[in-house]
Amino acid sequence: MEHAALQNIVDLGPYFSINKAVIWMWVAAFLAFITIYMAGKKEMVPGRYQSFVELLLTLIRQKMVLDTMGHAGLPYFPLIASLFFFVFFCNIVGVFPLGPLGHTATSDINVTATLAVLVLVIVVVTGVRKKGIYGYFVKGFIPHGVPWYVIPLIYPVEIISLLAKHFALAVRLFANMLAGHQVLLVFTGGAVALFAKGIGWKLLGVLPFLGVVGMLLFEIFVALIQSFIFAILTSLYIGDSLREHH
């Protein structure tokens, strides 16, 4: 049941060592690259695969970017699409039961926290570039129409809310992936323990086995939904700092 510590495969100190999570992130990045690259042949009549990827990218462009950020958000479309595909492949490579070799990189808080910090930096830099330092950090954090004596109260709350949003972004993805795998582990443990017993218990062991099958299917769905949510929340937060509210 314990979450096994990651062994370093190539030891390069505390920050740059290569372990299983890094390898699987490389695999996910490579798969995401291949998925997009194979569809980029620029044929006049797109094949079946190319039209599928184009459909997917159009969906991301319309639903995630244009609906939340408007046309000002179109420069961020490559970022959103990359985040979506990277997180999706990170999630989906962990679904395959590869025994001790398999690993979901996004079930590690370090990976998702890094992605969330990346998004936070992009959000702040976008806001500062759009509204200036004064406009973003002073005017942007004070809601319109509050009396002056509430400002010392509301300013820290707004700062904390900004940080909490990105903290939640990291924890949501991490906890979803970890929880799914723990549930799979519990069901698998139950099935294995029951199958090791007598014939009556074996019949009862079918139930947790069906649970494993169902949860695996559900995990594929969760992998898709969580990457979608990560990407769309990123575009919502960037859209917040792009918009000239008040």
Partner: peptide, 11 residues
């Protein structure tokens, strides 16, 4: 996603 995050914090 926002609602689910609350349960996941507890998890």
């Amino acid at each position: 996603a926002f609602i689910e995050a609350l349960a996941l914090y507890a998890l």
